[in-house]
Design a protein around this nucleic acid. Structure first.
Lengths: 249, 249
DNA sequence: CGTTCTCTTGACTCATCTCAAATCTGGTGG
DNA sequence: CCACCAGATTTGAGATGAGTCAAGAGAACG
């Protein structure tokens, strides 16, 4: 209904939405989708644009439809830690909370299916299928956050890099249905700086460890953003997890 | 109903339960409590006992009633990271998941109000007040986990120690309604090793940083487990957060 | 009063950070 | 097409914070 002039986007019906089966609305039936349709609007954010400021009023609630956004938080002197990566279908915002605990920043062009605040809060109270889906998604995120805590607290720089590459490689493999022993190639959707913020390292250490993994033959680079992994199992070994634990699910 | 012989405990009615107003059952009405009463039983765990093993079948679902438990995960070579601390009223377990992602270990004598698995899964589907409370609790835990990621990834050893002490001090102050400029004294409920596992440090570094904070006059020790904080604001400064952000809520 | 566990402290090592410079990349305008 | 520039990345050299190894001091317990 209300569509901001600057950031408007083609309207999509929920029925044709690309993230429909995974987003917060995944368990909704047709009539519930109609209710959602009434309170949603699409907003587009430019690369680098801050969608939510930590400490400010949390006004944005919705589903990420397209693009990648980062969740992060900084110390007063500028040290920054990413605490989450948001992909299409991930939920942004929190019901019943006024102050945003973290920054949300668009890394590339991002489209959000944004719900109007009071209406959404109301809707979720009367729609168990919404609430259940949100609970499942939140629990999954909690598990990944805790997994990441293990990485941040206990892994070496080399293991951190290997873990991150393994996660991205696995997502790529899942899409192409390749076997672990085949090679995988993918494009890094992150700059060295974003990787550093994610892993709790400096840019220089990230760069050095990538070079070291290249020298060991664990990976090879076409250019700085295109990684080739000849043996996925080898990469997993470098990540330090049990070969069947952690990141395999 | 079913009470294990070895670990039995005095039965409590939900109405007289000490954690009633904060636990997963907080939003339940009287009739819903009756349903819970029918599928719950109390179990006691000894200090050091592992309540749930990571990677094993997740059979325990319930509320921590008494004691403190830790959530942690280890790398194959033994490096361990705590990913959560469970206090009375915290929820243990996860609906609809077979494999436990983390170890749950009792640090002292722990009592759990344990629900029978299939019945609880069923109950939560038909009881919105349970589901809503669980969603709120899970979101709070997700926020704290992410807060902790900032600590693990970006804080120095001294800041990590100060942050942990600040959290415990604040909880103590909240109970006694003391003002920040007053002195606070409390007993550490954790060993140096548990603190190290929590903060992503070694025992020796924990010990050294506590000594350093003592030498700076930020804290003083009666003995190794009894901390006195003469000026809470000073402690917060050492924690590195914005003085009004982060751990104040 | 040993025994055992927790905690502290010292000396040294090493991984990661810091500071600095070089290289590479893509884009812009002439 | 080329020169130039700004941003991203790599690499080097040195500093340092935290880990490792080892020993000693308390405290708790039987």
């Amino acid at each position: 209904m209300t569509v901001t002039a600057a950031n408007s986007e083609v309207l999509i019906r929920c029925g044709e939405c690309p993230i429909r089966v995974q987003a917060v609305c995944a368990y909704c039936g047709p009539s519930e989708l109609v209710s959602l349709d009434e309170i949603k609007s699409y907003k587009t954010y430019k690369p680098g644009e801050t969608i939510v400021w930590a400490g400010e009023n949390l006004t944005v609630i919705g589903s990420l439809v397209k693009g990648i956004a980062t969740l992060s938080r900084s110390l007063p002197d500028g040290r920054r830690q990413m605490v989450g990566l948001l992909f299409p279908s991930d939920f942004i915002g929190r019901t019943g909370k006024r102050v945003a605990p973290f920054d949300v920043v668009a890394t590339n062009e991002v489209v959000i299916c944004q719900f109007r605040q009071p209406q959404f809060d109301q809707l979720i109270k009367t729609t168990p299928s919404l609430e259940r889906r949100l609970l499942d998604m939140t629990m999954d995120e909690l598990d990944s956050a805790r997994e990441w805590m293990l990485l941040l607290g206990r892994k070496t720089a080399r293991e951190k890099i290997a873990s991150l590459l393994a996660i991205i490689a696995r997502r790529t493999m899942a899409l192409s249905a390749a076997s672990p022993r085949d090679g995988v190639a993918f494009e890094l959707p992150l700059t060295r700086e974003t990787m550093a913020d994610y892993l709790g390292l400096t840019i220089e250490t990230v760069s050095r460890q990538i070079s070291a993994l290249k020298k060991s033959g664990v990976i090879s680079l076409r250019d700085s953003r295109h990684i080739v992994v000849p043996d996925f199992i080898r990469l997993l070994d470098e990540a330090g997890d049990d070969s069947d634990g952690g990141f395999i699910d």
